[in-house]
Design a protein around this nucleic acid. Structure first.
Lengths: 219, 219
DNA sequence: ATTACTATAGTGCGAGTAA
DNA sequence: TTTACTCGCACTATAGTAA
């Protein structure tokens, strides 16, 4: 999925193909996008091939409509812009519970982290994390955390091993206070890890695959 | 200005460069965009060259911030998405008054148009149009009219000359009822033409270069 | 009118690498 | 570590044109 195709998809939506089959010639699309008729024709083919639009082809023209997948893509794009210009301090992030490999538990059990949790989060977390795989639609929200300051927990070296800086964002899950914890040096991930006073999994009777909503405060 | 650069600009904004100089390495930008460090570096150069971002270069890294022009570009993009998913029925479109070549007057003076104006707009317009050059920021709003139905005025042939279908959108300018009129087969333009019962220019004491706000109803 | 194929020209990407 | 150059390749656009 190339970016130029997302632009074409947006243009088609503007032309009315967002929620109805609309007559769009490759010539008109090309003019609107500032590309040739041929390039527009190819773009339409690629969009259809990617399953982002549905086509109805006649002998003199075609009717196009965005597919649900196409609409979803534009909505995600819209959300990203909206977060830029109308940032919300409180976000609801949805995802599914899954079991990690216990790495989270190992990390947050480190005394030098624990001291800081108590001091900066004002609670001593249960030694384990709740792993949530964020739904694609909420990824722009979740990613905002990567680019925000949050509550900084300093890293350290222990027994020759490096524990990097991490950051936290306070929040709630089903009414229980908790905190999102993520590394400062973060790479793209859809895994959100939560820590709390208690064992969230047992306290909330959560099982793998359960869909949950976490509320996260940005500052 | 290529589309891929707009995407990079958005990513930089997400990373915090929207309103503050932010440390961004070409490597990190590349990772976020799914391109190589080299390509990201080139993209940054092009963005700076286009005046969309400001750079502060150090010996080990750089700090970037969007320029006002860059912010404007993203805002326009945001507006386009917003109109898609949260369309407003009433829009305020801004522009500057300018003098046309009297073509508008010639067209709307045609009896077959005038009959329809009276019947469909419920008023007989003054024989002249007020030309407004729409400000760039409001272009997405104005363009929505091109892709909307509006009140259809049928075209005709008179004395061997073809007068095409046009469409109208009711509205107001400084409290005076008026109508935007534009051809159905519309090409990209920033010229909005208004018709009204009276001569808007004299009624509102407008002169070339005056900035005005027109309110337009979409249905 | 359309869509869309083919051939060619042009642009952009990543790898290697210099500074 | 950075940024950003050159080079070669692949992708993409356009012109011409067929259907």
């Amino acid at each position: 999925m190339k970016q130029v195709h997302a632009t074409a998809l947006k243009q088609l939506a503007i032309m009315g193909a967002l929620n109805a089959f609309t007559e769009v010639t490759s010539k008109r699309l090309g003019e609107a996008l500032g590309i040739s008729q041929q390039a527009a024709s190819m773009t339409i083919l690629k969009l259809a091939e990617s399953g982002l639009i549905e086509r109805q082809i006649g002998h003199k023209g075609q009717r196009l409509m965005l597919s649900p997948k196409g609409v979803e893509l534009l909505k995600k794009e819209y959300l990203e812009y909206k977060l830029l210009f109308e940032p919300a301090k409180r976000m609801q992030i949805h995802g599914t519970v899954f079991s990690g490999l216990g790495e989270g538990k190992y990390y947050i059990s480190q005394p030098k982290y624990k001291q800081q949790f108590l001091k900066k989060l004002l609670f001593e977390p249960f030694e384990g994390t709740l792993n949530i795989r964020v739904v694609p639609a909420d990824m722009p929200l979740f990613q905002r955390l990567s680019y925000s300051e949050g509550i900084r927990i300093e890293g350290f070296v222990s027994k020759g091993r490096t524990f990097g800086d991490v950051k936290c964002f306070l929040g709630r899950i089903q009414g229980i206070e908790c905190s999102v914890i993520l590394p400062v040096r973060t790479h793209y991930t859809d895994v959100m890890e939560l820590i709390a006073r208690e064992n969230l999994r047992s306290r909330l009777s959560l099982h793998d695959g359960d869909i949950v909503e976490a509320e996260v405060e940005m500052d």
